Amino acid sequence: MQPRHLVPLNALRAFEAAARCLSFQTAAAQLFVTPAAVSHQVKRLEAYLGVKLFHRGHRTVELTGEGEALAASLGELFGQLDLALDRAIAPATAHLRVSTMESFAAKWLAPRLHRFHRDCPELKLRIETGDEPTDFVRDGIDVAIRYGPGGYTGVHAERLMDAPVFPVCAPVPEDATAIAVPDDLRHRTLLHDDSAAGRAGVPDWPAWLQAAGATRVDATRGPVFASIYLAQEAAVAGHGVALGLAPLVEDDLLRGRLVKPFDRALPNAYAFWIVRRHEPGRHPAVDAFCRWLRKEAAGD
């Protein structure tokens, strides 16, 4: 067996932090050392490897080609090392970090978590919100639930639920004008969300009104919200009619906070997906959570 390299681990840590931050000063603050110490460790690593890792300018640093290649590998390796240490410190504790969009966490996941805790009392969840691509090693995320078209690369992804779209609003008071036909929406405020804008196959108000044959409604009228969650909450509050995603409005419909004025629903090119690393079967806690998600989705 060939002897292992006597790798300067402190130098590698300093370089990885400096490469990630593109700043010796910021890296030093993260590592609780001085910028001079980070610079010294990086120079030590450059001497060890015999290559230049940074182009140094006036108060700026930029990675060389060799530096970029090494930084990409080290980020993943240190992430794996951190995960291994976490498991060694607390091997009997099953904590799962779950990343999902805010609306899914609030409207679908939270109302069901009491059943998860009943079925899997030994597992503890930490729910984090976000919709950006997840680096499972770097971010320490175990499972992500994403709303999108699929086609996720470098991970294991499975379709959890479809997301058909239809109008929803708060129950109409008895003394208010009823919404009997789609053209009656001209008397209501339409609530829009940015999530449908520019996404092929994701229905918006113009698409739904056209499909419903509503010719007297201005499809652009009404406020625009930054997320599906905000638009649907505005509908719950009685501020207008929103286009709801079926999984996200189910609980509000069951509780009577929202109603469906029309049965027409449009198919959606986007769906909800379970996204995880390519390791099914190696993490029993993750497998148990994914099984529970599938069971809940099947019940819906």
Rank of each mutant, 00 (worst) to 15 (best):
Q2D: 11
Q2I: 13
P3D: 10
R4W: 13
H5N: 14
V7N: 03
V7F: 13
V7K: 08
P8H: 08
E16Q: 14
C21I: 00
Q25T: 15
A27G: 15
A27V: 06
P35H: 04
A37N: 14
S39H: 07
Q41V: 05
V42G: 08
R44C: 12
L45D: 06
E46A: 14
A47L: 12
Y48H: 15
L49Y: 10
G50W: 09
K52A: 08
R59S: 11
T60N: 02
V61F: 14
L63E: 08
T64P: 02
G65I: 13
G67V: 03
S73D: 14
L74S: 07
L74N: 02
G75T: 12
E76V: 12
D82W: 10
A84M: 14
A84H: 06
D86T: 09
D86P: 01
A90E: 13
T93P: 00
T93E: 11
A94G: 01
L96S: 11
R97H: 11
R97F: 01
V98C: 07
S99T: 05
S103P: 01
S103N: 13
A105Q: 11
A105K: 12
W108N: 04
H114W: 10
H114G: 13
R115S: 11
K124D: 04
L125W: 00
G130Q: 09
E132R: 15
E132F: 12
E132I: 04
P133G: 10
T134W: 05
F136E: 06
R138E: 10
A144M: 07
R146P: 01
Y152P: 06
V155H: 03
A157V: 06
E158F: 02
R159T: 03
R159S: 09
A163R: 00
P164Y: 04
F166G: 05
V168H: 00
V168F: 02
T177V: 11
I179H: 02
I179P: 00
P182C: 06
L185Q: 04
R186H: 15
L190E: 00
L191H: 00
H192A: 08
D194C: 03
S195H: 07
A197L: 15
A197F: 04
R199F: 11
P203S: 12
L209C: 04
Q210E: 14
G213Q: 10
T215C: 02
A219R: 02
R221D: 08
P223D: 09
F225Q: 02
S227N: 06
L230A: 15
Q232F: 00
A235R: 03
V236M: 14
H239M: 14
G240Q: 03
G240Y: 01
G240N: 05
V241W: 00
L254I: 10
R255L: 09
R257H: 14
R257Q: 15
L258E: 01
V259F: 04
K260T: 09
K260A: 15
F262D: 04
L266G: 05
A269G: 11
A271T: 05
F272C: 03
H278M: 09
H278G: 04
P280S: 03
G281C: 08
A285T: 07
V286Q: 10
D287S: 05
C290F: 02
R291K: 10
R291N: 09
W292T: 03
L293I: 06
R294T: 12
R294S: 12
A297M: 07
A298K: 14
A298H: 12
G299H: 13
